[in-house]
Design a binder for these strands. Sequence first.
DNA 1: ACATTGCACGTAAGCGCTTTCAGCACGTCA
DNA 2: TGACGTGCTGAAAGCGCTTACGTGCAATGT
Lengths: 326, 326
Amino acid sequence: MATPRRRATIHDVAEHAGVSIGTVSRALNDRTGVHPDTRLRVLASAAALTYDPDKAARELSNRRAVDIALSVAHGYRRLTPFFGLFLQHLSEQLAVEGLQVREVASGDDGLPVRDADAFVLLDAHPDDPRIGHLARLGRAFVLVGHAHDVRCVAADDVAGGRIAAEHLLRLGHVDSVHLTADLHAQAFADRAHGFATAFEAAGAGQPTTIVADDASTLGGYRAMRAHLEGGTRPGAVFAATDELAIGCVTAAADLGMRVPSDLSVVGFDDLPELGARLTTVRQDIALLARETVTLLHEALAGAAVRAVRLPVTLVSRGTTAERRNR
Amino acid sequence: MATPRRRATIHDVAEHAGVSIGTVSRALNDRTGVHPDTRLRVLASAAALTYDPDKAARELSNRRAVDIALSVAHGYRRLTPFFGLFLQHLSEQLAVEGLQVREVASGDDGLPVRDADAFVLLDAHPDDPRIGHLARLGRAFVLVGHAHDVRCVAADDVAGGRIAAEHLLRLGHVDSVHLTADLHAQAFADRAHGFATAFEAAGAGQPTTIVADDASTLGGYRAMRAHLEGGTRPGAVFAATDELAIGCVTAAADLGMRVPSDLSVVGFDDLPELGARLTTVRQDIALLARETVTLLHEALAGAAVRAVRLPVTLVSRGTTAERRNR
DNA sequence: ACATTGCACGTAAGCGCTTTCAGCACGTCA
DNA sequence: TGACGTGCTGAAAGCGCTTACGTGCAATGT
């Protein structure tokens, strides 16, 4: 049975290596002024004892115990795969700096419940009450998404819509439709705008927009299926989300259409598993996380508010093809 | 602009209240030996300074810096609303004890990447490689779900299936079907088993089982729709999940059937938003979180392995009704 | 009257770590 | 030879907190 192992401390390592704790600390943290031989000896001892520095002690000593609270609009209940991934990258990114997400919660009123040093707001509409709340309290926060006059970061959604349009246009799909959900959400509005603008600029007219009940795969499926069954048979669809796109693909398949020969579909996000085969507008979630952390530091330092837009790229996979004559 | 506020320390509070730091600590932690008046004064000072004790320092002092890693099978990518809620309760529960989930991650190989003191495994099949891995390492862990010979906790799925059956039977639905996904998952297998057993015990025969491609709302929708379109029109369906149930309800609606008059549906889990109107088998997620923490402590203490089953209850809402003659 | 209790509180040690500072053993330059 | 770096290391302070331990004081007992 697992003996309740006592964690090795820096003292144990020091003793084992025959040096002082100061030297161990320096060696382990790549500080200068340690003889190479000594460093090696310390490293070996640390490995031998499976030494794992105590986070709390390290934080305390570093006096960089920054509490970072992550606030998701509806708790985890509506956590999308996208935000799930983001979260993972965020905590990895913070771990690099020895920081960490301390708590993940928001009260029933939607307001962050904890008095942290800094907040990351997910899933916020521009008029989200949390923004005013935090601003009023003078707390550091960064919004993942977009709003005016607040520190925020998000993909360049307009550009995303545009490159989706250009891709489709290049393939000859002048009769594309746009499948989205809740245009009240800034990201969706921007993507729709970028898409429509590019179409008009190309003289292809205003594309039809289908609004699903929600941004789930089911939402996308039903909206698309209804549209397809309505008689109109567009050659391509740009879905505002990979999940919506999956719904599209599934709906098309259920109606006997083939993707991409009968219907091209391009998604948005590039979620690993979900869209492994999907042509989609990729946003770099790792980069998003890194930028979030940067902004977090700026917020803590009291720097000027700025909004950052992250580039997106189109990754062409199996769900788009040239328009066939019909 | 938010001045980079310096956090108040226990010394500030002590000075403000005109007492020593020891007294502040005792007052704030409900220790005995503090005069009621003094306690009040300290509390007031703490509030005035918005004092928020430094977690790191507290942990260090308490030497209960227990690293608890939460391991989700596929990262957050497949985090279901159910596990999302569970996570929330778990971190709340741990917060009560001054503990916290330190990291939430699993490597690309699916194995937990961090060397924590204890692990919470979500979403694990009984033959999940993580179980053997952790056991081999002699690490403390608890599995949320079921498997043989490991410390685990889960709802009483068999009973859940049974009470769903009894509810439906009581309403006269002898022609119920069971909608599930991936019977390889222990929970789903158990629910199906409980359901079928109760039906047979009542002399109602073996209920039809429909297996959806996945446990999403879309999966439930498509499976149910296909079944319904196939001609058979069951009077009721027991879905292994609230999400599947939502899919059912939606499919029925899309086919012009009315719930519950044409089709009764009962779900499983009782997720707040999702199933607000759903008749469902409720599991107490908060309790699940509490039990998880209890088992975690047992694991850390090296107690004997035990598996716990949590009771479930049927909550009857708007999606079930008595069988009509047809 | 004094010794004894018990309560409320202050003092200080210590949790495991980082980092400054001083010291020591060299070598270098005049 | 002595004054001076230079490179490496140990000692010790301190991060913010909890918690023995000790002390002063009033209340109690004799």
